[in-house]
């Protein structure tokens, strides 16, 4: 038995009640409606590694991020942080400081009325990590330097910075409580490519220097390839495929993974004709029966409409697909 994983989801699910108000429901004679944002997810993130979740809007990847840091409680199943139930771990501040989150929008996630030094120092103060102001100032300066800003930037307000610099501030804030586990929800989606490269390089550098564990959420497969050890492809609240990064790209198994890769514009301009996946992601309120991907799947068979596929081993990957299981996916 090696180290316990940093984070583990055991059949974790999160439902949202999206029913109409009671009276309207009674008049229309309809029942409650549940949106199954995350529906029975199993995954684990070993220490010091990066697990990425990719998928299109509405697939539940951000809900997983929020489950992972305890912003949502699971409706069913369990979220385990370093061997302890997350809810229990979060009750203790010495556990809580070990996890931090970086959000997508660096314009919305920094308080515009606070100076950068106060933003970065807030976790230090909240957890009472340093004995006095002088130590705190030195630590903030160190953190700002670490993320490629100047200690003098501490006196400024967030609006004086560009998007990329703001994301650096968010990272400095996240690092200030000496966390071991960072949940990054689309940390570079709001940034330009040249700035995205800077932030991705910084995150990789910090990981190798501090041994951080990342749960990385993104819709961009190319970005995910650069940062991940393992990748989970999500579709409608479930994992379609979970595989080591390199084998996912070398040999995508699930038809949805293949469709996603197929859909990415070709920068090499080989003149390859792309076959876009037809249709759109169905509503998670009324997901299709059986395999949720079946209405768009080129390999669909009657079994796919009736029976939901479980995640099963296929080589070094885990795939939830009847076609792969039956060996019908040869391509």
């Amino acid at each position: 038995m090696v180290d316990a994983p940093m984070l583990e989801l055991r059949d974790a699910a999160r439902y949202f009640d999206v029913s109409r108000p009671w009276l309207q429901r009674v008049i229309a004679g309809e029942g409650k409606r549940l949106l199954r944002a995350v529906d029975g997810l199993n995954l684990s993130v070993p220490k010091g590694t990066t697990l990425s979740l990719v998928g299109e809007s509405g697939c539940g990847k951000s809900t997983v991020a929020r489950l992972a840091v305890g912003l949502y409680r699971p409706s069913a199943g369990q979220v385990v942080f370093d061997g302890r139930d997350l809810a229990e771990a979060r009750a203790a501040s010495d556990q809580r400081r070990r996890m931090q989150m970086i959000f997508q929008d660096p314009y919305a996630s920094l308080n515009p009325r606070w100076r950068v030094r106060d933003i970065v120092a807030e976790p230090i103060r909240a957890f009472g990590l340093l004995p006095n102001r002088a130590a705190e100032e030195a630590r903030v300066a160190e953190l700002l330097t670490q993320v490629g800003l100047s200690p003098l930037d501490g006196h400024k307000f967030p609006h004086e910075f560009s998007g990329g610099q703001r994301q650096r501030i968010s990272i400095a804030r996240a690092l200030s409580s000496n966390p071991e586990f960072l949940v990054c929800d689309e940390p570079t989606s709001a940034l330009d490519v040249s700035v995205q490269a800077q932030i991705l390089n910084l995150m990789k550098e910090l990981q190798s220097r501090m041994g951080l564990t990342y749960l990385f959420i993104s819709h961009n497969l190319a970005v995910v390839r650069q940062v991940s050890d393992r990748i989970g492809v999500m579709y409608l609240g479930r994992i379609a495929e979970l595989a080591p990064a390199e084998s996912l790209f070398r040999r995508p198994r699930h038809p949805y993974t293949r469709a996603l890769m197929e859909a990415i514009p070709d920068l090499d301009m080989t003149g390859r004709v792309r076959i876009p996946v037809g249709g759109e992601v169905p509503s998670p309120i009324t997901p299709p029966t059986g395999c949720a991907f079946h209405p768009r799947c080129p390999l669909v068979q009657p079994r796919c409409k009736a029976e939901r596929p479980e995640l099963r081993s296929a080589g070094d990957a885990m795939v939830a697909c009847h076609a792969v299981e039956e060996g019908r996916d040869a391509a």
């Binding site: 490269a197 800077q198 390839r225 650069q226 790209f249």
Partner: peptide, 23 residues
């Protein structure tokens, strides 16, 4: 050249992406 270099490639993993410093 810098802009093109900073686009993460889909077909391979690079240890460090080319980046244009500054903004």
């Amino acid at each position: 050249v810098g802009l093109m270099g900073s686009i993460p490639p889909l077909d391979r993993r690079v240890e460090r992406l080319a980046q244009i410093d500054g903004a």
